[in-house]
């Protein structure tokens, strides 16, 4: 195979000359395109920017990290809640989750958004949410559908990922009623929920889709470090952040006693070769008041889902994920460690 390289008869000679010039830096610095004496560049860069004294630095950091005011009303308090992530049109898993959450004594049911994409029959999701009073927040999928965007806003560069993302987005967009889309547009981006324990301990959870900062930010276990989360929780004035969007469930208890919980998704398995999907149950430990996080695998009728997906002529690649538990698409988002655990 050959690559289209612009023709240049003097290429060899020009390349050699350019490399010679590039390598001729001894004692010189590159300032933009110019070569200047190293001392000239260093003197200019020494003069540039600010150099605060230590008190001013402390003040700058404190103001940068200062808590942000947040008018989001606090819901609850509840003893125990069940929280799920992206549904991806998987109404079979959604129905199974509602049953499981009630059986486990959840007082309130929360869904963190991304209702559509991937699976079949988007119109079957909304009635379940309404009938069981699931408290839904807005994901990037709802934002895109409500505002008439042309894609899901996951930002892929791999043409294969883009192909499948576009295909499932268009499938969903064509099958959601105007009323459903309008309802999506009115969902809150964030919610605050209080948990309390019998002895009166109380913790406040911040529920978001991607991260508290951006609806489409991916929080993966191997790329979301503890110092980042501590600063984030200080700024957001919360005892825990609950999120989804990345598709993989995980929990990081922090040195300060606070928590980050990615509740996973109901829409497809967690790229682990199992067919179950995941959700979270949360309550406060007695008597410590610490947040107790249970990440729960949820079996559901995945064979019925696969049959319906085939009937809807959704790609075999998607159906294979449901049947085998390995992701076959949207793989580009995974960091090195999470990617290495999967089959593809």
């Amino acid at each position: 195979m050959s690559q289209r390289i612009p023709e240049d008869p003097d290429l060899q000679a020009r390349r050699a000359a350019q490399r010679a010039r590039l390598a001729a830096h001894r004692g010189l610095a590159t300032w933009g395109e110019r070569l200047v004496p190293l001392a000239t560049f260093q003197a200019a860069s020494a003069r540039a920017g600010r150099s605060l004294d230590s008190a001013a630095r402390d003040a700058a950091v404190a103001s940068f990290l200062a808590p942000r005011s947040d008018p989001t009303p606090v819901e609850g308090p509840f003893r125990r809640i069940a929280v799920c992530g992206g549904v991806y049109n998987n109404h079979y898993a959604l129905a199974a989750w509602i049953t499981a959450a009630r059986q486990r004594g959840a007082e309130a049911l929360y869904c963190l958004g991304d209702l559509g994409g991937f699976g079949p029959s988007p119109h079957k999701v909304w009635p379940l949410l309404e009938e069981h009073r699931v408290r839904v927040s807005q994901g990037n999928y709802e934002q895109s559908l409500a505002s008439g965007r042309e894609d899901c806003n996951c930002g892929y560069t791999d043409p294969r990922d883009n192909h499948f993302a576009r295909l499932s987005y268009e499938y969903t967009a064509q099958r959601c009623s105007a009323a459903f889309k309008q309802w999506m547009g009115e969902l809150p981006e964030r919610r605050r929920v209080a948990l309390h324990s019998p002895s009166g301990r109380r913790r406040e959870l911040l529920l978001v889709h991607g991260s508290p900062r951006r609806v489409n930010e991916f929080l993966f276990e191997s790329t979301t470090p503890a110092p980042y989360l501590e600063a984030l929780l200080d700024q957001q004035q919360a005892d825990a952040v609950l999120c989804t969007h990345s598709g993989l469930h995980w929990h990081r208890p922090l040195p300060s006693g606070r928590d980050l919980v990615n509740v996973g998704v109901l829409g497809r398995p967690a790229n682990d070769g199992r067919t179950e999907v995941w959700f979270a149950l949360l309550e406060l430990d007695e008597p410590s008041g610490d947040l107790q996080v249970e990440l729960c695998p949820l079996p559901y009728d995945h064979l019925a889902l696969a049959t319906e997906m085939r009937h809807e002529r959704l790609p075999e690649e998607f159906v294979a994920t449901i049947e085998q538990g390995w992701w076959t698409t949207c793989l580009e988002i995974l960091p090195a460690r999470e990617r290495a655990r999967g089959r593809f």
Binding site: R50, S51, L52, R57, V61
Partner: peptide, 8 residues
Amino acid sequence: KMGDRLAD
């Protein structure tokens, strides 16, 4: 260049 240390 904006400063000597991140806080700047």
